[in-house]
Lab assay of single mutants.
Amino acid sequence: MKVIFLKDVKGKGKKGEIKNVADGYARNFLFKQGLAIEATPANLKELE
């Protein structure tokens, strides 16, 4: 799953980066902790 990092995550990505991560990792950790959001077309447009 592609995500947009909202904060730096050690060993995974830095704020503003778009990366592929495991679905479970994204849903169970990154999204719940507010560290990333899903890289949907709408979210990508907001990032620009």
Rank of each mutant, 00 (worst) to 15 (best):
A39L: 08
N43A: 13
T40N: 08
I18F: 04
E17Y: 02
P41Y: 09
K14I: 09
G24I: 12
I4E: 02
M1L: 14
P41A: 12
E38K: 08
A36W: 01
L44D: 05
F29P: 04
K14H: 09
G11N: 09
K14R: 13
I18R: 02
L47M: 11
I18W: 03
D8R: 04
M1T: 13
L47F: 12
L47W: 15
E48F: 12
D23G: 12
K2M: 15
E48Y: 11
K12G: 14
G13N: 03
D23Q: 13
F29W: 12
A22I: 10
K19Y: 07
A26E: 11
D23L: 13
A36G: 04
V21R: 00
K14S: 09
G11P: 03
K15F: 06
N20G: 07
G16M: 04
V3A: 01
L44F: 06
F5S: 00
A39Y: 14
A36H: 00
A22E: 15
L30M: 03
E46K: 15
V3K: 00
K2Y: 14
A26N: 04
K2E: 09
V9K: 02
D8M: 03
E38W: 06
L44P: 03
I18G: 01
A36V: 07
K10T: 11
M1F: 07
N43E: 06
K7I: 11
K45Q: 13
E17F: 02
M1V: 14
A22R: 12
V9M: 04
G16I: 00
K12D: 07
M1N: 04
G24M: 11
T40Y: 05
A39R: 01
A39F: 13
V3R: 00
F29R: 06
I4Y: 08
A42E: 14
V3S: 00
K32H: 11
E38F: 04
N43H: 10
A42S: 11
D8K: 03
P41E: 14
K2T: 14
V21K: 00
K19W: 07
E46G: 12
A42D: 12
D23W: 12
K2H: 09
M1A: 05
K10G: 07
Q33E: 13
G34H: 09
R27A: 08
V21M: 09
K32A: 15
L44E: 05
I37S: 04
F5E: 01
K2W: 15
F5T: 00
E17L: 03
V21G: 00
Y25H: 07
G11E: 05
N28D: 15
N28H: 12
A42G: 10
E17R: 02
K12Y: 15
G16N: 07
P41N: 11
T40I: 06
E38S: 06
A36K: 00
G13K: 00
A26T: 09
Y25P: 06
G13P: 01
G11F: 06
K7F: 12
A26W: 10
G16V: 01
N28R: 10
E17T: 06
K15D: 01
L35I: 07
E38Y: 04
A36P: 00
T40W: 05
A39E: 03
A39D: 02
K12H: 15
A42P: 07
G11I: 02
Y25W: 09
G13T: 02
F5A: 00
K7V: 14
K7A: 13
G34T: 03
E17I: 03
K19V: 12
I37R: 06
M1Y: 07
K14Y: 11
A42T: 12
E48L: 14
Q33W: 15
V3G: 00
K32G: 09
K7E: 10
F31K: 04
I18L: 07
A36N: 01
A42K: 11
N28K: 10
A22T: 13
D8V: 02
D23F: 13
G16P: 01
K15A: 13
N43R: 11
L44A: 06
I4T: 01
E48T: 14
Y25N: 05
K7G: 05
L47P: 06
K14G: 06
I37F: 04
R27L: 14
F29G: 05
E17N: 04
I4P: 00
V9Y: 03
P41V: 12
F31I: 14
L30T: 00
E17M: 06
L35F: 10
E38D: 04
F31Q: 03
K32D: 12
N28L: 09
K19A: 11
L30K: 00
F5V: 00
K10W: 13
L30S: 00
V3T: 01
K45I: 12
Q33H: 15
M1G: 03
G24Q: 10
L30R: 01
A42Q: 14
I4D: 00
N20D: 13
Y25L: 08
V3Q: 00
D23A: 14
Q33G: 06
E17W: 04
K19D: 02
A22S: 15
Y25M: 06
D23E: 15
N43Y: 08
G16L: 04
A42I: 10
G11R: 05
I37T: 07
G34F: 07
F31Y: 05
K32M: 12
D8A: 06
F29I: 15
K14T: 09
K10P: 15
A39G: 04
K45F: 12
V3N: 00
G11W: 06
L35Q: 04
F31W: 02
I18T: 06
A26V: 09
T40K: 06
L47I: 11
K2G: 05
G13E: 02
E17V: 03
M1I: 15
K7H: 12
K2S: 12
L35W: 09
D8W: 04
T40E: 05
N28S: 08
I4S: 01
K2P: 08
P41I: 12
R27S: 07
G11D: 08
K15S: 06
M1D: 04
L30G: 01
A26S: 05
N28P: 00
F29E: 14
Q33V: 08
N20T: 15
I18V: 14
K10L: 13
E17D: 13
K45A: 13
Q33A: 12
K32V: 15
K12S: 14
G24K: 13
F5Y: 05
V21I: 09
V21E: 03
E46F: 14
K32R: 10
I4R: 03
A42L: 08
K7N: 06
A39K: 01
L35K: 03
F29T: 11
G16A: 03
K14M: 12
K32L: 14
V3E: 00
L6R: 03
V21T: 02
K45N: 11
G34I: 02
K10V: 13
